[in-house]
Amino acid sequence: MKTPITIIFIIVFILEFKAQHFTHDIGGFVGSSSLQSDYGERGHFGSEINNKNMSFSVAHYLSFYNRTLRWDPNNVLHNHLMVKTELQYIKNTDLEHYGYYASKQTYGGEQLRAMKGNVRMLNLGVNLEYFLRPLEEFVYPYSDISFNPFFTFGIQYSFFNNGVNSDLGDWKQDVTLLPKKYQDENHLALGSGETFAVNIGLGTRYKLTKKLDFVAQFNYMYFFSDRVDGLQAAVFENKNNEWAFNLKVGVVYHLNFSTPLFY
């Protein structure tokens, strides 16, 4: 008796899910990530531009403009909103100190210039993307809309692993090779860790074909941790949490486009 009921339940569930007409996309991206941390001088142009590296990500999109049989062009949730689930890998291999103190021709300046950091990060996040143009009109194959800008907001969970080395030698054997403020073992937090982060941004889609979009996106990411870079010196200039700028481009493929029904 249980088997037929289970089969019926599964069939009803599948039919109900199909009736919702959710639309799925998948995408792949490559970009540049600039980590703003305790490396370098905050607000210093060289720190913001040079402490960057590559990022790679894959994403799944869920949209709702075909959620019901009766299309409603005025419904914001149905026609303008996407839910994006993303897995992103970031590798910063050459974090360095820039700014006034690092440029000084003193031993302290030399210690700062010689100190190099690295961070590897895996981010799993969920974002809401709000598109300015109706998604049904943009995706529909006979539409003349090519660009569709969007705003994005999301939260993610980050797994990271960091390290530090010095061009002056093995600092683990001689900690005085590091700048003075990092010589206390409590001022370094090296190894693996986890943290939440939030991000906001903007971007645009450009229709390449009826099934394929080009995407460009810029976003700001704020971490709820000050140990992503592995540095935790108890000084004024190292008190802020890490954050990052991300610029990426990619392509998105429409998996199950279906012609909308009008009543």
Rank of each mutant, 00 (worst) to 15 (best):
M1Q: 12
I5C: 06
T6Q: 12
I8R: 11
F9E: 14
I10H: 02
V12E: 11
V12W: 09
V12T: 11
I14R: 09
Q20C: 15
Q20M: 13
H24I: 15
D25I: 02
G28Q: 08
S33Y: 11
D38I: 13
Y39M: 04
H44Q: 05
F45M: 09
G46L: 11
S47T: 07
E48K: 14
I49H: 13
K52F: 14
H60M: 04
L62R: 05
L62F: 09
F64T: 07
F64V: 05
T68W: 14
R70N: 15
R70I: 15
N74F: 15
V76P: 15
L77W: 11
H78W: 13
M82H: 08
V83G: 09
V83S: 07
L87K: 03
D94Q: 06
Q105W: 09
G109R: 05
Q111C: 03
Q111D: 02
Q111E: 06
Q111S: 01
R113W: 02
R113N: 02
A114Y: 03
A114M: 01
K116I: 15
L122D: 05
N123Q: 13
G125A: 05
Y130D: 02
P134T: 14
E136I: 07
F138E: 01
V139R: 15
Y140T: 05
Y142W: 11
I145K: 01
Q156M: 03
Y157F: 06
N161R: 02
N161Q: 01
K172G: 10
D174H: 14
L177M: 04
L178I: 07
K180F: 15
Y182H: 10
Q183S: 07
Q183E: 06
S192N: 01
G193R: 06
G193T: 07
T195H: 03
F196E: 09
N199C: 11
G201C: 05
T209N: 02
K210R: 10
L212P: 13
F214P: 00
F214Q: 01
F214M: 01
A216F: 06
A216D: 07
N219E: 10
M221A: 14
F223P: 04
F223Y: 06
S225W: 03
R227E: 09
V228A: 07
D229C: 10
G230H: 02
A234H: 08
V235N: 00
E237S: 14
N238Q: 08
E242L: 05
W243L: 05
F245Q: 14
N256H: 01
N256E: 00
P260G: 00
P260W: 02
F262L: 11
